Simulated scan of single mutants.
Amino acid sequence: MRMNRIERFIAELELEGKSKHTIKTYKSILNTFLNVVGRDPADCSIEKIKDYLLERRRSGYNISTLYIHAVVLRRYLSWVGRTDYESIRPPRIGRKLPEVLTPEEIRSMVEAAGRIRDKAIILLLYTSGLRVSELCNLNVEDLDLERGIVRVRGGKGRKDRISFFTREAVDLIRQYIGQRRSGPLFINKEGRRMRPLNVQRMIKKAGKKAGIPDWQKRCTPHKLRHSFSTHLLDRNVDIRYIQELLGHSSLATTQIYTHVSVSTLKKHYELANLELGIET
């Protein structure tokens, strides 16, 4: 069966080893353009593509979503051989500092979670810094419970790495898996591998039961990852080691946490001792 240009482009992404999530995103964005405009982006002028992006923005797309659309369209135009793709400039995204949960809040979430499985998930996410997709892809045999080591296979960018988890997490996982020695680590009531959406819902529910206001701190798996990174930094762990544990390819990605660690910042500020000895 003959493929059109977009289908050939998607096939190229698969050959490059892009993740299913990335491929799904590219396919969705290009097909949305095709359905709305009625033409392949490669056959449209830069002005037409910019008009499309402007319409998306006015229809309610936020800056982050618009940025992804612009990047995908640029990549596609470059692939088909267009030299004017650089005229499409993705919007600048303001850098938001990640929110983090306190150790006390995370403990409350673990205690509020109903099942041993859910307690183990929250604690493993927090103490290892895994992404939710990485957690859901774990098999029992990926864990070394004696040494508290987890091997992440095919993480973001198809990279393998190891991380660690605490004795408390080990104890909960042992209780949860029982005699199982292989297969998916976390399973649903049908015995199938848990999906990220299931984990996200469970963590949101645990946060609510723990009394953490959703409007104040939205409890998500990624927030546990942010908390892991920030708390390590608070305890003076070298940022290069945190980079390895998180699986970041660039140190610049990890460095956002240096702007979040308020307690560390305040400690260094107080060491400067700017007091003038003024009596008030």
Rank of each mutant, 00 (worst) to 15 (best):
residue 272 A to E: 15
residue 25 T to I: 09
residue 37 V to T: 06
residue 101 L to F: 10
residue 25 T to D: 09
residue 4 N to R: 03
residue 280 T to W: 11
residue 196 P to H: 00
residue 47 E to P: 02
residue 261 S to G: 11
residue 69 H to M: 09
residue 73 L to K: 01
residue 212 I to D: 02
residue 4 N to H: 04
residue 131 R to P: 02
residue 43 D to L: 06
residue 213 P to I: 04
residue 234 D to H: 15
residue 243 Q to M: 11
residue 67 Y to C: 10
residue 86 E to H: 11
residue 211 G to N: 07
residue 96 K to A: 14
residue 12 E to D: 14
residue 119 K to E: 01
residue 131 R to V: 00
residue 252 A to I: 13
residue 247 G to V: 07
residue 45 S to I: 02
residue 110 V to I: 15
residue 121 I to Q: 01
residue 32 T to K: 10
residue 20 K to V: 03
residue 41 P to N: 01
residue 210 A to K: 05
residue 110 V to T: 08
residue 41 P to R: 04
residue 12 E to G: 04
residue 146 E to V: 14
residue 66 L to A: 07
residue 249 S to E: 12
residue 219 C to L: 01
residue 24 K to D: 09
residue 46 I to G: 02
residue 235 R to V: 08
residue 65 T to Y: 04
residue 128 S to N: 08
residue 274 L to T: 11
residue 56 R to K: 14
residue 33 F to Y: 10
residue 268 H to A: 15
residue 83 T to N: 15
residue 224 L to Y: 06
residue 204 K to A: 14
residue 8 R to M: 12
residue 98 P to K: 08
residue 161 R to M: 05
residue 127 T to S: 14
residue 137 N to C: 05
residue 138 L to S: 02
residue 138 L to M: 05
residue 181 R to S: 12
residue 79 W to T: 05
residue 245 L to D: 05
residue 255 Q to I: 09
residue 46 I to L: 12
residue 264 T to S: 14
residue 220 T to G: 01
residue 228 F to G: 02
residue 171 D to V: 06
residue 18 K to F: 07
residue 136 C to I: 00
residue 183 G to A: 06
residue 181 R to Q: 13
residue 57 R to Y: 14
residue 121 I to D: 00
residue 20 K to T: 06
residue 256 I to M: 09
residue 254 T to Q: 08
residue 244 E to D: 15
residue 57 R to E: 15
residue 207 G to R: 00
residue 5 R to P: 01
residue 34 L to I: 03
residue 204 K to F: 09
residue 223 K to W: 04
residue 48 K to F: 08
residue 273 N to H: 15
residue 175 Q to P: 05
residue 5 R to W: 07
residue 26 Y to F: 03
residue 148 G to Y: 12
residue 94 G to K: 13
residue 34 L to T: 05
residue 185 L to E: 07
residue 175 Q to I: 08
residue 154 G to I: 02
residue 239 I to N: 12
residue 42 A to W: 02
residue 13 L to V: 04
residue 253 T to R: 06
residue 235 R to S: 13
residue 51 D to Y: 12
residue 263 S to L: 12
residue 261 S to Q: 12
residue 36 V to I: 14
residue 105 E to T: 08
residue 217 K to G: 00
residue 131 R to F: 00
residue 155 G to H: 02
residue 48 K to E: 15
residue 147 R to K: 14
residue 244 E to M: 15
residue 138 L to V: 01
residue 128 S to C: 05
residue 19 S to L: 01
residue 269 Y to I: 11
residue 238 D to P: 11
residue 82 R to Q: 03
residue 149 I to H: 12
residue 266 K to Q: 13
residue 225 R to V: 00
residue 186 F to V: 06
residue 185 L to P: 08
